[in-house]
Write a protein that binds this DNA or RNA. Structure first.
Length: 462
RNA sequence: GGCCGGAUAGCAAAUCGGUUAUGCAGUGGAUUGCAAAUCCAUCUAGACCAGUUCGAUUCUGGUUCCGGCCUCCA
């Protein structure tokens, strides 16, 4: 039974989709004015793991992840770059897709853009005004009236009066209540705008996600996710908008992914302590990044450091080493999977609120079993290796050829390395161990590690 | 100030009211010409103080420290 922690109830709950045959999931995606950083990577990877697991449970999963391609930061950045907004956003959307691919993240089923959903936003804003929960200020901006939505604060555990006490005074706006938020914002002369019943302008951030999620998944759907920092105010406001307009429950399960930290502080644009995905990819491969992200539970903080990235790389090396050289024939795999409980325990760990650290620990137990069987029963070792690969596929790792993973990033050409190994073999045959050790040391210097076995010598990167 | 989280061995990271987490590193052994890889064994835990309990790292209360949200943020 799949259990998911729900931010709304603050408990793990048995997950039951509204329609037993179909799960609808919406995740807040990127605002595309810059390259994605490691925090984005965590959301991309974890919801990819979640989607892969949901797909094994339910016949159909509709995964929607939006793109915010219009907002203040985008406008500002376009002006700074003297670049057209669409050229800017398209550039960063392409970059995001490249990053996503490097991390082994499968594309969502639908990736709606805010600028394609303006009509749906009009409709929702209009409904809210009709219902008296939204109003137009004298400056033309349309606001949501938080006092007119009874459940405001139920997701984030905040209370309007307490928020009010600490609220900043926003002098420029025309809000009835300082906590009211903007649904439609009047455009300044040179800014991009859409004509609307309330004047030329652009949508507020929160309304986009309400409009896009309800449009694609209906007014009431199963899972809504995002980074933890979106809980308040973004997701709180989405609930207010969607439930206010539609008069029905918006989302059953709210999921929030924890932060990526640097020295125990949140990585963020505002703090300026962020690392872009593509920057990190210069030093570590995408699978290592993905492993690193999965090595802690999705709701815990994840500390970003070279030490931890190197640990991830070493861990993956161990798993690939176990698979290496074994055939991928799946003949006996099912039988082996029945006989051992690796697969059922692996699935159970993911069923328990997507506990990837436990799932990974089971892969290590499996690797140990493979290594132990290698000399004793090669057929069983093959079958177990196949099982390891299969379990890896469930979370998007171990799908590349073991040899290529273990040899990647070495400067010397394969032929040159093979020639050196041959030289060393000859020296060994002549019992010239001084020479053979010297050759091995030379290769070690170049980041190449030799491994002798009964079947000859193989190598991997250090 | 209000509202949330967290504190696990050298490092990373889970589970769990009583039994080996797991990985890296360390130590001893097997294997190897020597290594590497692998296997076997093994050392390091549960911030602090009370309480509940036959028994708590796990439950409850308090203390200390750290982090997050309350403004844009994944």
């Amino acid at each position: 039974m799949l259990k998911i922690y729900n931010t709304l109830s603050k408990h793990k709950e048995a997950f039951q989709p509204i329609d037993p045959n179909k799960v609808g999931m919406y995740v807040c995606g990127m605002t595309v004015y810059d390259y994605c950083h490691m925090g984005h990577a965590r959301v991309l990877v974890m919801f990819d793991v979640i989607t892969r697991h949901l797909r094994r449970h339910f016949p159909k999963v509709e995964y929607v992840r939006n793109i915010t391609d219009i907002d203040d930061k985008i406008i500002k950045r376009a002006v700074e770059n003297k670049e057209d907004i669409y050229s800017l956003t398209n550039r960063f959307i392409d970059a995001m897709h490249e990053d996503e691919q490097a991390l082994g993240v499968l594309p969502p089923d639908v990736e709606p853009r805010a600028t394609d959903a303006i009509d749906q936003m009009f409709y929702m804003i209009e409904t809210l005004i009709e219902k008296g929960i939204a109003y137009q200020g004298s400056n033309g901006d349309v606001y949501y009236s938080v006092r007119d939505f009874e459940g405001y604060g139920k997701l984030s555990g905040k209370n309007l009066d307490e928020l009010e006490a600490g609220a900043r005074v926003d002098v420029e706006t025309d809000k009835r209540d300082p906590l009211d938020f903007v649904l439609w914002k009047m455009a300044k002369p040179s800014e991009p705008s859409w004509s609307s019943p309330w004047g030329d302008g652009r949508p507020g951030w929160h309304i986009e996600c309400s409009a896009m999620s309800c449009h694609h998944l209906g007014n009431h759907f199963d899972i809504h996710g995002g980074g933890m920092d979106l809980t308040f105010p973004h997701h709180e406001n989405e609930i207010a908008q969607s439930e206010g307009a539609n008069g029905t429950t918006f989302v059953n399960t709210w999921m929030h992914v924890g932060f990526v930290n640097i020295n125990d502080e949140k990585m963020s644009k505002s703090l300026g302590n962020f690392f872009t995905i593509r920057g990190v990819l210069e030093s570590y491969d995408g699978e290592t990044l993905r492993y690193f992200i999965m090595s802690s539970h999705y709701r815990s903080p994840l500390n970003f450091s070279d030490d931890n990235l190197n640990l991830a790389k070493t861990s993956l090396t161990r798993l690939y080493t176990a698979i290496r050289g074994l055939s991928t024939s799946d003949a006996a795999m099912d039988e082996v999977s029945q006989r051992f409980d690796f697969e059922s325990r692996f699935n159970a760990s993911l069923d328990d609120d997507f506990n990837t650290p436990i799932a990974l620990s089971i892969l290590f137990e499996l690797a140990k079993a493979i290594n132990s069987q290698r000399e004793k029963d090669i057929d069983q070792a093959n079958a177990l290796a196949q099982l390891l690969k299969k379990l890896g596929s469930y979370i998007g790792i171990l799908q590349t050829d073991a040899d290529s993973f273990l040899k990647q990033g070495v400067d010397l050409a394969d032929e040159d390395i093979d020639a050196k190994i041959k030289q060393r073999d000859e020296a060994k045959a002549n019992k010239d161990f001084a020479l053979s050790d010297q050759i091995r040391d030379e290769l070690t210097e170049l980041g190449i590690i030799l491994e002798d076995s009964a079947n000859g010598t193989s190598w991997r990167r250090g």
